[in-house]
Simulated scan of single mutants.
Amino acid sequence: MISPFIPFLDLRAGNEVVRKELDRAWRDVLGHGRFTGGPEVEIFESEFAEYCDSAHCIGVGNGTDALELILAALGIGPGDEVIVPGNTFVATAEAICAAGAFPRFVDVRPTTLEIDPDAVEEAINPRTVAIIAVHLYGQMAEVDRLESIAARHGLVLLEDAAQAHGARFGGRRAGSIGRAAAFSFYPAKNLGALGDGGAVLTDDDEIASRVRQLANHGRARESHWVHDVSGRNSRLDTLQAAVLSVKLPKLDEQNHKRRVLMQHYREQLPRRCMPLAQHGLAESVHHLAVVQVRDRAAATHVMSVAGIGWGLHYPVPCYRQPAFAEFVDEKLPVTDRAAERILSLPLSPTMTVAQVDRVCQVLSRLRGRS
Rank of each mutant, 00 (worst) to 15 (best):
M1G: 12
L9C: 05
K20V: 11
L22V: 12
R27W: 09
R34N: 08
T36H: 13
G37W: 05
E42I: 11
C52E: 07
S54C: 14
A55I: 03
H56C: 03
C57D: 04
I58G: 07
V60Q: 08
N62I: 10
A66T: 04
P78H: 13
D80G: 03
I96M: 07
A101K: 13
R104T: 10
V106D: 05
E114D: 11
P117E: 06
T128L: 06
A133M: 05
V134M: 05
Q139V: 05
D144E: 15
A150D: 00
G154M: 06
L155Q: 00
L155F: 03
L157C: 00
F169N: 12
R173W: 04
A174K: 00
G175H: 04
G175E: 03
A180C: 02
A182I: 01
D203T: 12
A208Y: 01
R235Y: 12
L239H: 12
V246E: 06
L248D: 05
L251V: 06
K257N: 09
M262A: 04
Q263A: 15
Q268G: 08
Q268R: 14
L269R: 04
P270L: 02
H279M: 08
A282W: 15
A298Q: 13
A298S: 13
T300W: 02
G307N: 00
L312M: 10
H313T: 10
V316H: 03
Y319C: 14
F324V: 10
F324M: 09
S344N: 10
